[in-house]
Design a binder for these strands. Structure first.
Lengths: 341, 341
DNA sequence: CCCTAAATTGGGAACATTCCCAATTCATAA
DNA sequence: TTATGAATTGGGAATGTTCCCAATTTAGGG
């Protein structure tokens, strides 16, 4: 059981003044005598007074809290985005509460309830790979709580979004593979309800076409972000009569898995089959061979999303702006596609 | 600006009953007519009513929120512990708010303020490597808010703690190195204000002594968890007249760095120098050579800490128990110490 | 010394809910 | 029919703070 905490009433009684005055002293209100203010602040410090955010929020109808819903924290991509979110949020005076959906649609729904119960002022969301219905997310809009999507966006909702140029990133990466002499480049695509999967696939195809390479649908596999499936797909690919000479995976964890499988089969990387990923996970450079990938400005994604969200929070509902920010990616060439001595 | 949200007053007016009755219907109170209850629940659903946790907390003096302060999320160790924390917390009806101290003492202090402002019911803390003064953490105790330490504990505070048997883990690991024939085993120790650093070092020394190996202080380097320093230390070690034949690093990130450095110098692992870490980070098995390490029951650490904390929350301040739970580690032998064909 | 305006302070409603106690309704047995 | 007790409902204080408006104090000019 918690002790009773010090309140402004305690301070008011001790100084024989009203709670209004104490409140003014603690909130930098102009209408207050400097001497009084000083006395209040000193006593508050001495009594280890802590403002009760609950009652403040109740009165002001604002919690100064931002909710974040991500698929998982264990994925270094999301934990790095969260670093950017927290920095931007704290410096603007906001707290952050984080929920993981664990790539599970039902859990995402209950996360939405947690956010609504906590009366967050706004939410940042990156959806699960399962999410195809958006009613739960639309509840935020209905209640006037702004939402900003990042990474895994919802095209159906007209709200701010922060993404990277997945098309261009995949295009550059594929072009790089072609320039290293690869002719049959396979693609382990992402779930087709994620926009980013489609854009990456489109970038990949565009690069093939530009360089007059055949777009072979047998080499495009619908990967559903479940690592178990990767083994099946890779085995399928290497047993093709006309085996691919490169594999571009939709993200780094998948690419890392691909590398493990190829190594276990003693297939030389990159000479026999080159491998590339997307997002530049923390560990990609430590792999052997180190992983060629497309880096995203992760912390910036978090920062920009948060700034857009806070901007929405400060606007009237009728004045919400649905900007889509597209950040630049950068091709990181490493040994899994181009072996250096 | 948020819209006005639906309240129990709205429901009460719509059904022409009192707020007390609505409250009873929504809280599974026994003293209520089933028909009334059904009507309330249906209308609440229809109006998309959301309980306002703020006022509930204000009245009950309980937020059902647990605060977590960790050094950083990017470290897979902590994000895995948090998974355990969140599971245990949610299933007990608690929310979780997470703060990162970024290994910075001042930030830890401001995290404490955030927690106090948010009126958390209890906190889980793993300190920064800089924390040597604990006044900020003692404020929780003074206010009757229970605190539980995990991983990086504070011996000065008599509160529940959850740790692993660092001594035994390090002992087994060192013994394993000795059994593979290593005679001069170096240790990159952790900061000496972290208990876990000391225990691991003690386990290491005990194993040497047990096997009649010299404890050479030149081989024990005070590592301060700053990756920059690792290069200097490793260079120092390999240039010693009597070069070590194994390096035991206090944690996996350090060990991974050590491996990179040794590889860049074409030193064979493990034949020339074996390398081992501690904690079994996510990527350790993907390394080449894969990393021998000591695994910790990470999710369990999170779960047990949370359970201890919730137990404290439900107790009276005078009835707090200061149990220390010591969980078992497991030696994971991989190629960085014992090469398999 | 008084008046006026400015500076400062106080009173109290409001925020959404719980919970205690009192009031009301209802069914049942005498 | 009436009394009795159980079931159900209502009233209103309490939680800690802000903020509007009114009241009081203060300073300065005439």
């Amino acid at each position: 059981m918690k002790n009773r905490q010090v309140t402004i009433i305690d301070i008011a009684k001790a100084l024989n003044i009203s709670t209004s005055t104490v409140s003014r002293a603690l909130t930098n209100h102009p209408n207050i005598n400097l001497t009084t203010k000083k006395a209040v602040l000193e006593l508050a410090e001495k009594m280890d007074y802590q403002r009760n955010m609950l009652s403040i929020s109740l009165v002001t109808n604002k919690t100064n809290t931002i909710g974040v819903i991500v698929p998982e924290l264990i994925n270094s991509y999301f934990s790095r985005v969260i670093i950017g979110i927290q920095k931007a949020a704290y410096s603007a005076g906001y707290n952050v509460i984080i929920c993981q959906s664990n790539e599970n649609y039902d859990q995402e729904i209950s996360n939405v309830n947690i956010m609504l119960n906590s009366r967050v002022d706004g939410v940042l969301v990156s959806m699960t790979k399962e999410t195809r219905n958006f009613d739960h997310l639309k509840r935020f809009e209905k209640k006037g709580i702004p939402i900003v999507f990042f990474n895994r966006i919802c095209e159906e909702m007209i709200v701010p979004r922060v993404i990277v140029d997945d098309y261009e990133g995949a295009f550059q990466l594929t072009e790089h593979l072609i320039e290293t002499g690869k002719k049959r480049i396979a693609h382990l695509a992402g779930p087709d309800n994620l926009i980013l999967s489609m854009r990456r696939k489109e970038g990949y195809i565009a690069a093939l076409i530009k360089h007059n390479l055949e777009v072979d649908n047998d080499l495009i596999l619908p990967y559903d972000l479940n690592l178990e499936k990767v083994k099946i797909y890779v085995n399928h690919l290497i047993n093709l009569p006309n085996r691919p000479d490169a594999i571009f995976a939709v993200n780094d964890p998948t690419a890392i898995e691909v590398i493990q499988i190829l190594k276990s089969k003693n297939i030389k990387i990159p000479s026999e089959i080159a491998v590339a990923g997307f997002s530049n996970d923390n560990f990609s450079s430590y792999l052997e061979p180190s992983l060629t990938t497309v880096s995203q400005p992760v912390e910036e994604i978090g920062r920009v999303s948060t700034e857009l969200l806070i901007d929405q929070i400060n606007r009237d509902v009728n004045d919400w702006k649905a900007i889509t920010k597209v950040l630049k990616t950068e091709l990181i060439i490493r040994n899994s596609t181009l072996m250096r001595k």
